[in-house]
């Protein structure tokens, strides 16, 4: 598929702000629930080893957009994608009919809005992705679990109770467990759907700190309803409204000198 060269990106600063290298990008991505169009030709680039934030009022389609990346919508009947999501470096359109959603999900990882640890032990939660991938070697799994828990800044807190139920941890710990679960399989792209919305400020701060640390190794795409959070942690920001991309640009620029009136109204709190 030909990559869109202009038009879709409405950055006033022009091509200078174009992120690169890219880990992924969406090209005129549209999405339907039944006959209802909820994403309208959205094109966003995702810079490698950067944090890209999606902001916008609730119902603007940002979560729907995120869930397109690992084909979560395939699980429900009556949904339809149009356009493309291209994953680099192999330039593969993961929405192609020939692409198996499971294959996509094995390359990507996702953290959900509400912590959803499985009712299994902490250890088994993190090991789950590895087991699904057919890894049986106990030593490999042990090592990966520890690594992932360390990356998620949870190791020190749970190393003595790896066999405790994942659901017995506190909210913030549960969410970090879910992040560890996502990281254990070395995903190329980490999708986060409002990961801190169910957490208290302290737990939120620790997760934000964690993301800063993680972005050195993994590309992150995060949906947040909290503009301050987007401004604090992301490198790039996309502002969506009513299923459309209004503006995309470097976070700093977008928050200081937005090009679009709608963006300015939103970030100054005049609506949304």
């Amino acid at each position: 598929m030909a990559l869109p060269v202009d038009s879709a990106y409405t950055d006033s600063a022009g091509r200078g702000d174009w992120p690169k290298p890219l880990k992924a990008e969406t090209c005129e991505l549209s999405f339907y629930y039944g006959t209802r169009l909820v994403l309208k030709r959205v094109s966003v680039p995702i810079a490698e080893c950067n944090i890209t934030a999606l902001i916008g009022p609730s119902g603007c389609g940002k979560s729907t957009f995120l869930r397109c990346f690992n084909r979560m919508h395939d699980l429900y009947p009556g949904t339809r994608y149009e356009g493309a999501i291209v994953l680099y470096p192999d330039s593969r359109n993961i929405l192609d009919r020939g692409v198996d959603p499971i294959e996509v999900r094995m390359r990507l990882a996702m953290v959900f809005q509400k912590p959803n640890p499985f009712p299994k032990s902490v250890y088994e939660n993190v090991a789950y992705g590895l087991r699904v991938r057919g890894i049986r070697d106990r030593r490999v799994i042990d090592e990966k679990v520890e690594q992932a828990l360390r990356s998620a800044a949870l190791w020190e807190e749970v190393k003595d109770r790896l066999s405790a139920l994942g659901t017995s941890l506190s909210g913030g710990q549960q969410q970090r467990l879910c992040i560890a679960r996502a990281l254990a399989t070395d995903p190329e792209l980490l999708l986060l759907d409002e990961p801190t919305s169910a957490l208290d400020p302290i737990a939120t701060a620790s997760i934000e700190e964690l993301l800063q640390d993680l972005k050195r190794r993994v590309t992150i795409l995060i949906v947040t309803h909290n503009m301050q959070q987007a401004a604090r942690i992301s490198d790039w920001t996309a502002f969506m409204y009513l299923g459309e991309l209004v503006e995309f640009g470097p976070t700093k620029r977008l928050f200081t000198t937005p090009a679009k009136k709608q963006t300015e109204d939103y970030i100054t709190g005049r609506f949304g």
Binding site: N70, M72, L75, L108, M110, F118, R131, V132, C178
Partner: peptide, 27 residues
């Protein structure tokens, strides 16, 4: 069993059967 648990498993690249057998049934 809540859908979010299944989604958690699918998001890891698990098949329907793996999700059913390792997540839904134990839960």
């Amino acid at each position: 069993v809540p859908m979010v648990l299944r989604e958690g498993s699918y998001a890891m690249g698990a098949t329907h059967l793996e999700t059913a057998w390792r997540v839904v049934v134990p839960a």
